[in-house]
Design a protein around this nucleic acid. Sequence first.
DNA 1: GTTATTAGTTTGGGTCCTAAACTTAAAAGC
DNA 2: GCTTTTAAGTTTAGGACCCAAACTAATAAC
Lengths: 407, 407
Amino acid sequence: MPHAQPAGAHTVRRHNTGLVLGAIAEAGPVSRATVAARTGLTKATVSSVVEAMIGADLVAETGQEQRSGRGRRGTELTLSPHGMHGLGVEIGVDYLATCLVDLTGEVRKRRIRGGDNRNRSVTAVLGRLATLLRTTLADADALGVPVGGLGLAVPGLVEPAAGLLRTAPNLGWREVDLNTELRARVDLDDRPLILGNEANFAALAELWSADDLRDFICVSGEIGIGAGIIIGGELFEGVRGFSGEIGHLAVDPNGPRCSCGAQGCLEQLASVESILRAVGLWSSDAVDPASVEALLDRLSAARPATVRAVAQAGHWLGTALAGVVNVLDVPTIILGGRYATLQPWLAEPITAELTTRVLAATWHPVRVLASTVGPYAAVRGAATAVVRAIRTDPTRFVPALVSSGVA
Amino acid sequence: MPHAQPAGAHTVRRHNTGLVLGAIAEAGPVSRATVAARTGLTKATVSSVVEAMIGADLVAETGQEQRSGRGRRGTELTLSPHGMHGLGVEIGVDYLATCLVDLTGEVRKRRIRGGDNRNRSVTAVLGRLATLLRTTLADADALGVPVGGLGLAVPGLVEPAAGLLRTAPNLGWREVDLNTELRARVDLDDRPLILGNEANFAALAELWSADDLRDFICVSGEIGIGAGIIIGGELFEGVRGFSGEIGHLAVDPNGPRCSCGAQGCLEQLASVESILRAVGLWSSDAVDPASVEALLDRLSAARPATVRAVAQAGHWLGTALAGVVNVLDVPTIILGGRYATLQPWLAEPITAELTTRVLAATWHPVRVLASTVGPYAAVRGAATAVVRAIRTDPTRFVPALVSSGVA
DNA sequence: GTTATTAGTTTGGGTCCTAAACTTAAAAGC
DNA sequence: GCTTTTAAGTTTAGGACCCAAACTAATAAC
């Protein structure tokens, strides 16, 4: 363990501050006494921490606890609605989106700008994005809330640590320093920018919205196929942030040739695009909503050829996911994006493959669920990632929470 | 983040104790002053922590620092050779092994008992193992060193948290409560038992022996194929400890039927067994050393059919590993077990597949290396896992290191 | 109204950290 | 050979933070 940090009194305070904030977030309105009981800290410590957090406008007192039985009523504590917000930004293939999320994870404001981004230059798209972003920062001002940081979701291979977009095949982008480019256009002060892959942020959004799911992978695949991996309630990013790229998993060595040069890649056989192609609903070069509607209509009407095509995609998806589950040992698969609506037809063939191929399935069967977050999960997840960072370590965003910032 | 623990002064001490111990372990003999510089702690703190660790016999002073220039010479600190040891135990298919590893990771004693375990009952094998284990505990007594805990490596699917062996196909074992069974036979006091999969412990052994590798997967495959995953210098176990089961990754849907019921599983196409079968060297139902020697002879002699068979196995292995790398984003693959000796013939076909199929390979090529630990990596890793636990949090093993053990 | 019970604050004690002064040891300069 | 300089390690004083327990405050039950 090289380069580990020494610990001191401030470390303890930082940890406990996050602990208390987490307890307030999870237990809804709670009294100091309840927080103390839940966290294992003493009432004195909780009081002290809460006092600092109220001062930083992270927590607010919202009246008296309503409860039967005797004894003094506690003061209800909740996350402050005027506390720091997370700002999510998404560059989609055919839209730009931003959203503001408060400390509870609630979306306070969302803005979507439609328009195909594939026919525009990087500069043009970033220009439009900058405008949208400035508008959203103005929204935050209007709401009277500070923005703690930004999360930026992109449909491509991203190196979060470097702030670099390596490649976004569906946008036609390569090697864009998004962190620098964005800061050059919009004044973000020293607010952190969390750059990430669309699929990863979508997975985080699922994690945040369901409260009993701590381990799962969230798969979506309109044109390329990607998966966000959540283990132990944490995003698993791999070494450089490239994890979850399951689109080029080999499932059929005799399958169609892929743009990557190999044969039988999953995304040639199981993407929504490939399904639409198989049933003759592929129109332009995008997954347009009308085609997906038509597909769902045919499925509801139980047209054999359509059902078979989706089942075939499910078979390949299951084959690949079985591999992923064997490698990661994850108990749950969430179908996100367009897959979510196809879940009733996809789940069975996927489960069939999982059951035979996953060694651990005998003891712990793998569940296949549909996403509960719905569309625009990625922007929400991006904003959420900021909120998550604030909640985990509030002292990073509000240095005043710990007395001497000697670090 | 539910059920997180509150932090206090003892938490700080625990953290810093591990930090100092880690610094001493990594930097070889070092003075207190150097440790202070490396860890960022003050000299006063380091002195205090070191004093406690010397008292606990984890660290020893071994004379004066030799160095040019002026100023007082420091006292060299090293991990104590009489400090706590880790005891590794392995149940192999055709042997039983134990070893004692000191705090530096050095093997101090190793015992191997040959003999096919597949033709024996669970009870018989555990009886033999108990005897070997008692002998090894006596070895530790003779060396005058305490044993901090045990690591037990098994060739099968294991649930570490529960201490359960779910299934070991090559032993023919199912549902064995190894923790309970072993404690019933040998008095282990309250020493912790770390149960784990062979491949995982082998990977840990690699991690420990190389000092610049922090992210890799270590693959081996005599009959079944397994991989240990190391990310950020930590073993990635998955949710229940079943991670890395790559033997049943689907690589060829038209391939041979597997015992698991599915078709085209990797271990039917790329295990050492399957290679030996392909070249007509498969004799009994085990991978015997003589056959492997014969295989290596033919490869050295560049016999086309043999080279082709190994290359074919490498091709399938590469296909599967490309999937694993795409999912995990790991920059290095280590070939362990019998694969290590085949590395010169396997590396190229594996690399070829990785290069085309791994998206991130354009920016970060994947290396394919041979194991440096050699045989019996798993036992060593098992013992090592205990040492690693001691080094990470010595206070768990020596409560006296932190003043009031109030938790 | 008194009592029991629960919420939250105040006080005293303790651990562990840091910073800075101090002691010890050894080379370098004159 | 003695003084100076530099570095190692210890001692001391001060501060942050935690906990335990006493204390104050509020409210239902008797």
